[in-house]
């Protein structure tokens, strides 16, 4: 069931921009020991060209809490320019919904950094 969930999610991942690489964690003991109450899990590590951008993205996305904390759990960590994201959920459907929403907000944040993060905007 877990593999099915992750395979399902993998197909829905949006295409990443050039300066990002998708690098999923392989399974390890921590995953196989996932709690009974949250059987479905998703994680992704997102490297950024600059360390400060990972911190900015984490701060931006951390503020909005999950709408249903009793059935979905999320952790965000920024370390050495990599954003580590973990989701755990009771149901595959729920996991797909929250991960999809997370990616929408992630891409919006990244687009904002690309538009305004590099240089001063000059008047026309």
């Amino acid at each position: 069931m877990k593999r099915q969930a992750e395979a399902q999610i993998a197909k829905k991942k949006p295409k990443m921009d050039d300066d990002l690489e998708y690098e999923p964690d392989s399974e390890d003991e921590r995953l196989t020991n996932a709690g009974v109450l949250f059987p479905h899990k998703f994680n992704i590590d997102i490297p950024f060209a600059r360390s400060e951008w990972a911190d900015i993205v984490r701060t931006t996305l951390e503020v909005d809490k999950e709408l249903k904390p009793t059935v979905v759990r999320r952790t965000l960590e920024a370390k050495d320019g990599v954003l580590h994201v973990t989701y755990e959920a009771l149901e595959v459907r729920m996991l797909r919904t929250v991960v999809s929403s997370f990616f929408d907000m992630l891409l919006l944040t990244i687009d904002t950094i690309k538009a305004f993060g590099e240089q001063e905007q000059l008047p026309a």
Partner: peptide, 15 residues
């Protein structure tokens, strides 16, 4: 609402 807030938070940190 959340879409707008995400952009504002990002810009606030960049600027």
């Amino acid at each position: 609402l959340r879409s707008v807030a995400v952009v504002v938070r990002t810009l606030a940190q960049l600027w």
